[in-house]
C-alpha cells in the first residue's frame, strides 16, 4: 500500500514540493521558491539549515535555505552537475522532492546588542541571505550591521539589485575579482574589505560563507582586527547523502557536518581545516 506524502513518512522519503517561482540569478544559478505540493505543512526553517533536494530519477543535492525563514522555502542553486542541473531546469509547477531541513543554524541572536558582519564569497551569499533578513528585521538591536560580498565577476554577483537596496539600512561593500570598465565598483579579494569595514571588533559577531580558502582568509582578517575566534562562524560542507548522521560521508574528523553543523565556530573548526585531506 502506497504511503502518502505526509510527515508520517520516514526521513529518507522526499516530500513533493512544487516550483512556485523561478528566477535566473546568473548564467548558471537559479533561485527557486518551493511550496508543498497538494497542501501540507510548510517547513520550519532556521538560517543556515539545508534540505536535500531531489530531482526525479536524477538524485539529491544538499542546498542551503536562502530565503527569509519566515516565508516559503527558497533555494538558490548553481548548476554544476547532473542533479543540480536538473533542479535548475525545473519549470514553474514542476515537482521536486525535499527532505529536511537538516543541520544547525547561524547564531544570529549572539550578534544582537553588538555589531554584526556577514561576509560572503560567490554563491556563499545564498546561505547567508536569511541572516541578512534577520539583521534587517532586528536592525534596531544592532550597532553596525555590515555585509561584505565578493564574487568573480560583476555578472556573477547574486541578488545584485537586492544587495544594493540593503545599502539603505546596512553597511554594504561589494567587490569582484576582476572586471572591465563597465564596473565602477571595487576590484579585489573579498577578505581585503574587512580591514576598512567600520565596526567595533570587541562587540562584533561574524558569519562567513564561501569557498574554504575565502572563509579562512576572511576569518584571519577578522582576527587581525581583534574579533574573537569564538564569535566568528563559518558554514562547512562535505559530501552528503543521508542528512541524518547515519551514512558517514559528511565526517570532518570528530564532527558530522549534517548533524553538528553546517555552522561552526571558527575556534572549534580552524584546527580541523588546517589538516590536509582530513
Amino acid at each position: 500500500m502506497a504511503a502518502t506524502a505526509t510527515e508520517t513518512q520516514g526521513p529518507m522519503a522526499p516530500r513533493p514540493f512544487a516550483v512556485a517561482r523561478r528566477k535566473r540569478e546568473t548564467a548558471d544559478t537559479w533561485t527557486l521558491e518551493l511550496e508543498p505540493a497538494g497542501g501540507g505543512e510548510p517547513l520550519a526553517l532556521a538560517p543556515g539549515q539545508f534540505t536535500m533536494l531531489y530531482a526525479f530519477g536524477s538524485g539529491e543535492v544538499p542546498i542551503s535555505v536562502s530565503g527569509d525563514v519566515e516565508g516559503p522555502l527558497v533555494h538558490t542553486v548553481r548548476a554544476v552537475g547532473a542533479v543540480s542541473q536538473a533542479v535548475c531546469a525545473a519549470k514553474h509547477g514542476a515537482v521536486l522532492g525535499v527532505r529536511g531541513p537538516f543541520g544547525n543554524s547561524w547564531p544570529v541572536e549572539d550578534a544582537l546588542g553588538g555589531d554584526a558582519l556577514v561576509i560572503a564569497g560567490g554563491i556563499g551569499l545564498a546561505p547567508l541571505r536569511p541572516v541578512v533578513y534577520e539583521l534587517l528585521r532586528r536592525r534596531a538591536e544592532l550597532g553596525e550591521a555590515v555585509v561584505l560580498y565578493g564574487s568573480r565577476r560583476p555578472e556573477e554577483l547574486l541578488y545584485a539589485k537586492e544587495v544594493e537596496r540593503w545599502r539603505k539600512r546596512l553597511q554594504v561593500d561589494v567587490t569582484v575579482d576582476a572586471a572591465d570598465r563597465s564596473w565602477t565598483g571595487k576590484v579585489g579579494f573579498v577578505a581585503k574589505l574587512v580591514a576598512a569595514a567600520r565596526f567595533d571588533p570587541a562587540v562584533a559577531t561574524a558569519f562567513i560563507c564561501g569557498p574554504e580558502i575565502m572563509m579562512r582568509t576572511s576569518a584571519e582578517a577578522l582576527l587581525e582586527r581583534g574579533v574573537a575566534a569564538e564569535r566568528i562562524h563559518v558554514s562547512l560542507e562535505r559530501n552528503m547523502q543521508c542528512g541524518l548522521g547515519h551514512c558517514g560521508h559528511c565526517q570532518l574528523g570528530p564532527t558530522l557536518i549534517c548533524r553538528d553543523g553546517p555552522v561552526y565556530r571558527w575556534d572549534e573548526v580552524a584546527p580541523l581545516m588546517g589538516v590536509r585531506e582530513l
Binding site: A3, A5, Q9, A13, P14, P16, A18, V95, L96
Partner: peptide, 17 residues
C-alpha cells in the same frame, strides 16, 4: 530498497516507501 517513486499525471511526485 528504501522507496520507489513515480511522477503522476500532473507532474506530481508519489513516493512509496
Amino acid at each position: 530498497k528504501l522507496w520507489q517513486a513515480r511522477q503522476n499525471g500532473d507532474g506530481g511526485l508519489e513516493v512509496e516507501e
